[in-house]
Each structure stands twice: as structure tokens, then as C-alpha cells.
Write a protein that binds this DNA or RNA. Structure first.
Lengths: 342, 342
DNA sequence: TTGGCAATTGTGAACGTTCACTATTTATCC
DNA sequence: GGATAAATAGTGAACGTTCACAATTGCCAA
């Protein structure tokens, strides 16, 4: 029914295997023959069948990204969307398709027992050439063990793990926190608060540390509050601060909390940035449409996934990679930061 | 190396084919035998290999969603993200995994010649069981012809096509526009404008029509402006309106334009909703965090994709579906609509 | 020439399923 | 109880690749 390698071989007057070699870009084919085969492929419009390829023992050309089921669904259900997922797609799809791979997303349960079983299943059913692990799965040693045991290349989107040389892609959370502080001190602020998210989120701890260190270096007193990444919690904290002469500048760990600050400030008649400066650590699409547009740290999410894909495809093609890869972030200055009030 | 159907067959003391029947839920297996096989599957932790399954001539368990490459990448590059894609994932992934399928995304060029070739390629390389076509591919007759010729079930996320009974999933664009108008007239507004997007986008035309009809029915004069879905264009129009006693209420076709209105209103000291009411036709996550939060039409994007997946999986399993499926929308009243000023 | 080695090309088997049959068992009816 | 049909179970081949190895070709030096 569909055109097979056999058809191409016949048309070019060679054997299957030679055609296969050409398709896979393997050496050991005379230029003249290669060209003849390429012509035949083009003329017949031959496209290899991935399932058969995989059956023959080759790659599946699938890169699988694994996300936390609970959190992802929760965000969707709450109508917050998952800009994170969208960014993953941005980086991952383009990187993959450039090399003929496809990107597949899977939602995996948080609970470790379930997670291991679910990953085992997708591993054997789909046989992806590489796996990308995001929070919190990237910090699950059982998952790493399973993947290592199966000999599947995987990349963790997470901070480097001291007792493992597994491939890991991340950005400088601490440096970004420091950059935010520096930007604000540069504007003359001295009461700078950090509106943090969740302690169970490892990157959050590192950001707190970066913030703390930067404040200490500037001779300032740190002030950390727990906002739980939530609009309401952050709003309550903001109200308390704004009504009682709190900080003149706030670094919020995500956009939702930043929006809450904006909201409360607007309600209380506090002008941004004249009376309050604000930096978000997330920069979702909404950030630039806020009133006023949010100054924000832009995490290189798409770039991290793209890099992870690259490394995994390299590994699938016999160039195993490991170690950690740190990507640069941006501090995008929009309109929520300004000189400290006097 | 990995556990095969053969292993299960041996463990249960039956043949391959019987195990296969059980896996595929086919009839004609005695309950006792079925149970024995299921036990063996569970004990061995057997998981079928999808590539082999496909090779054997069965389904691929893949549903492929096709998006417009240019627009999608443009949105990503501009930092606007693609909430649309995120919503597709929401609906699609969950629907698929519930029945053991996987959802795959592909970016396909807008130009029709390229599109047909690219779709042909993914069709033969991945052999998906069903294809979801979104704008503008959903309106490309060549693509539809290709898919029909190949006998691949496909669903268009688009308005029904009069001269085709192809499967089609959509929502009531005209009705939503009317609902927006009705909400505003109910609040006493009489100068209601429609800030439209792109004429090349078929749904936009239908929305204009719905708006126009509703205005006529209310005995009001329609006022349509072309905002091209762009922040800047919409901002210019908004400035003109607000400075020259324009409409007291605006329906914007997407959030970005609505944000522009909010932005300009804030700049000009025009109070929302006291002096200007605003409804968006999109409702991305940013809408609820805007100041003030946007009243919006909520399109059932996730639900449409989920429905499309369901229908395609049914088709893959021998229950071909066609005709059009219209899903309900929501008008979510937040804080940008209020009584008309006097 | 001719032998030998490297480069190139070809061959049969295998991958893990399902398909299209065939064979066997079980139930039904008179 | 036997014949017949229906239900259940099993078998070899096929799907389209790649693998591992075997066969051929070409080239160079002796």
C-alpha cells in the first residue's frame, strides 16, 4: 500500500540495506549510488515508517517530556493555564522537528510509587529516545534509577545534584534573585521584600538564598514572606505591607503574586512604581499587558527544554552527554520599577 | 530483553493470539482464561509495545493535532505565548490518555502546497489514528482531500462546511457575540463597538455578523473597527474613541486588544467600568489578573479538542463519526462591565 | 599479475504485534 | 447420543525496518 524501502531499492537498483544507510546518513556508500538513491526517494516520495524503524531496533525519534500531573491539571482547571507547558512546547517542538524527532508530553503522578510505574509504562510502550524530567520528577531518585537501569538518556530540568552526574539543565536562580535586588538597590530602594512561593520547591530555596546574600552584601535587612504562589495569600500580605509602611519594593516569585500586589496597590491608591516597585520572577504573557507592565526576570524555559532536547538527541545518536548546563536569564525592565520614594 | 506477549502466553499457558485478544478487549475468550491472562499480565508487568502493535497492522494510538506554524511561532517569539496551544493540550492530553492514546502536536506551514506535503509526511511516518485540524488548516480543502483519500479520520476545529459532512467541532461564535451585546444593552449601553480582528479569520466574520444582528435587533447602530488582534492598533483606535466621545462599551475580539483598551483608558484617566465597559472574546489566564479583571467570553477550546479526540478515537475503533458538534460557551462577568454612564 | 585489505554492497533473520485462517472444544437440538 | 453449529483457541505469515554478518568490488603494492 504505502511506499517502502524495498520500492526505493528496486527503483535505484540497489539493496534495502544500502537505501537504509542513505536514509540514516551512514558512511560507506559511494557518492554516485547515494545520489541515485536520493533521487529515487524524492521521485517516489518515500517517507520512512517510524514504527517499523523502531521495530528494526533503531531509534523511535520520540523525545518525551514529563510533567507533574497534579500541578499541571490544577493550573488548567483553575484557569491559570500553564505557560510553563507552552514554553516547553516552544523550545522542545522546534528543537526536535529540526532533527526529525517528535516531542511527546506526559503527565505523571507526583506520588513516587505511581510515578515510577507510569514512567515504566510509557517507557516500554513508546520507547522514547530521551526523557526530560521537570519538577518535581527531576528530583526523584527512583525515577533517575529506573531510567539509568533502562539505559535511556534523560535530562533533568533542575539544579545540579551533587551526588550524580546526570544530565541537568537549569538557570542561575540565585543570580537572578541577586540581579533583581541589585536593580532595586540601584534605584535607591532599601526596604526590599521577597515574596516567596513554596519551600518544597527547591529552586525557591535557592532564590531566597540569592536574595538574602545580595541583601546582606548591600548591608540591608532581608524580609521574606510566604505567598504560596497564590493570588489571595499574596494579596493579604500585600495589604498588610501597604497599610503599615512595609517595603518600598517587592520581588514576587511568580506573576500571579505580582498581579495580586498590583491589584491591592490599585485598591489602596498606592501608585506603582512611584510608591511601590515590583519585580516578578516569572514573566508570563500577561506580565507585559498588566497595568503597568511588569518588570520581570525572564526564565529561559524554552531554551532549557531546547537544550535538553539537543543533548538527548545527541545521546540517542551516540554522543552521550552529562554534567550541568546553566543558561542565562534576562531581567526585563518594564514599568513597575522606579526610583525609591523619599 | 523486554517482556513480550509470548512471555505472557507462556505464563498463562495459552497462545499469543489469545493474549492479544485480551489486551485488545476483543470478545471470544472464556472468562476463566481471560482472568488467567490478566493475572499473568499483571504479574509480569507486561506493557504492549506500540511500535510493534502498529507494525502488526493495528492502531498507532496516536492522535495528531495540527497547528499553523507561522502564527504559533510568531506568538511565541513575541512573548505572547499560545494559550490556545495550552488549552488544546488540556483538552487533548487528558481525553487521549484516558483511553490509552497519546497526543502529538505538529506545526504545519500555512502555504497550502507545503502544508499538504508536510501532512503527507507525518501521516506516513507516524500513522496517527486521527488528525485534528485547526485554523487555517481546517479550512484547507486540499488537506481534507488528502486525509479522506488516505482514509484517516480527521476533525476540523472550525465552522461547519456546507459542502462537506466532515467531522467538525466548533462553538457558537455568533451566539457569543450576541450574548456580549445583550449583556451590554442590559446594562443600558447604546453605543457598543466591536473591535474586530482579522477578516481572513472566518470565525471573525461570523462574530461580526452576530454582533451586527444583535445590534439591529436592539435598534442600535453597529460600529465595527479593525484592530488586527494587535495591541498597538487597538490602542490607537481606543485613543481615538476615548478622546472623541466614542462608544461607552467595547467588545474586543481578543485579550490583547482588550488589554490595550485598559491601558489607554488608564492613561487617559477614563474609569473602567464606570465610564467604559469592556468585554473580551478570549479569556486567557491574564484576563482574570487584569486591573480590573476582564469580563469575557470563554471559548470552550479544551472541550472542543477533547470532543474531537473522543470522536477520532471512536472512529479509530470502528465508530466513524461525522457532522458538526457545537459546544457551549460562557460569558464570565468580572469587573470591566457596568451600567452605562449617563 | 596477483594477493591482500579496505571500501562498498547484499542477505537472511529478527523485532513484537496482529491478521487471516484453521483447529479444536463446547453447546444445542432433535 | 449424535450431528451440527457456535464459541473459543491456536498457527504461520506479514508488517517495514535494521542488525549482524557475508559477499563482492576496487585499489594498491609486491
Amino acid at each position: 500500500m504505502s511506499i517502502t524501502i524495498e520500492d526505493v531499492a528496486k527503483a535505484a537498483g540497489v539493496s534495502r540495506q544500502t537505501v537504509s544507510r542513505v536514509i540514516n546518513g551512514k558512511p560507506g556508500v559511494k557518492p554516485a549510488v547515494r545520489e541515485k538513491i536520493e533521487t529515487a526517494i524524492a521521485e517516489l516520495g518515500y517517507v520512512p515508517n517510524l514504527a517499523a524503524r523502531r521495530m528494526g531496533g533503531a531509534r523511535s525519534f520520540l523525545i518525551m517530556a514529563i510533567n507533574d500531573r497534579e500541578r499541571t491539571i490544577e493550573n488548567w482547571a483553575a484557569g491559570h493555564g500553564n505557560d510553563w507547558v507552552d514554553q516547553m512546547l516552544y523550545g522542545g517542538m522546534l528543537a526536535c522537528e529540526a532533527r526529525g524527532y517528535h516531542m511527546l508530553f506526559e503527565l505523571i503522578d507526583t506520588e513516587t510509587g505511581k510515578a515510577v510505574e507510569q514512567v515504566r509504562r510509557v517507557l516500554t510502550s513508546l520507547q522514547p529516545d530521551g526523557i526530560i524530567l521537570t519538577q518535581p520528577h527531576s528530583e526523584n531518585p527512583e525515577l533517575a534509577a529506573l531510567l539509568r537501569e533502562r539505559g535511556r538518556p534523560f535530562a533533568r530540568i533542575a539544579l545540579p545534584d551533587a551526588n550524580s552526574d546526570a544530565l541537568c539543565v537549569h538557570f542561575d536562580d540565585a543570580g537572578a534573585a541577586r540581579a533583581a535586588v541589585d536593580h532595586l538597590t540601584g534605584l535607591g530602594h532599601r526596604k526590599i521584600a521577597f515574596l516567596a512561593g513554596d519551600r518544597s520547591y527547591e529552586a525557591s530555596l535557592v532564590r531566597r538564598e540569592g536574595y538574602g546574600d545580595a541583601m546582606k552584601d548591600a548591608g540591608l535587612e532581608p524580609l521574606i514572606a510566604e505567598g504560596g504562589y497564590s493570588f489571595d495569600k499574596a494579596g493579604a500580605i500585600a495589604r498588610d505591607w501597604l497599610e503599615n509602611g512595609g517595603p518600598t519594593a517587592v520581588i514576587a516569585e511568580n506573576d500571579e503574586m505580582a498581579f495580586a500586589l498590583l491589584h491591592v496597590a490599585s485598591k489602596l491608591g498606592v501608585e506603582v512604581p512611584e510608591q511601590l516597585s515590583l519585580i516578578s520572577f516569572e514573566d508570563t504573557p500577561g506580565a507585559r499587558f498588566a497595568v503597568p507592565p511588569l518588570t520581570a526576570i525572564r526564565q529561559p524555559t524554552a531554551a532549557m527544554i531546547a537544550r535538553a532536547c539537543e543533548l538527548l538527541m545527541d545521546a540517542a545518536e551516540g554522543q552521550p552527554a552529562n554534567g550541568d548546563h546553566c543558561l542565562p536569564f534576562d531581567l526585563i525592565v518594564r514599568e513597575t520599577t522606579g526610583p525609591a520614594p523619599r
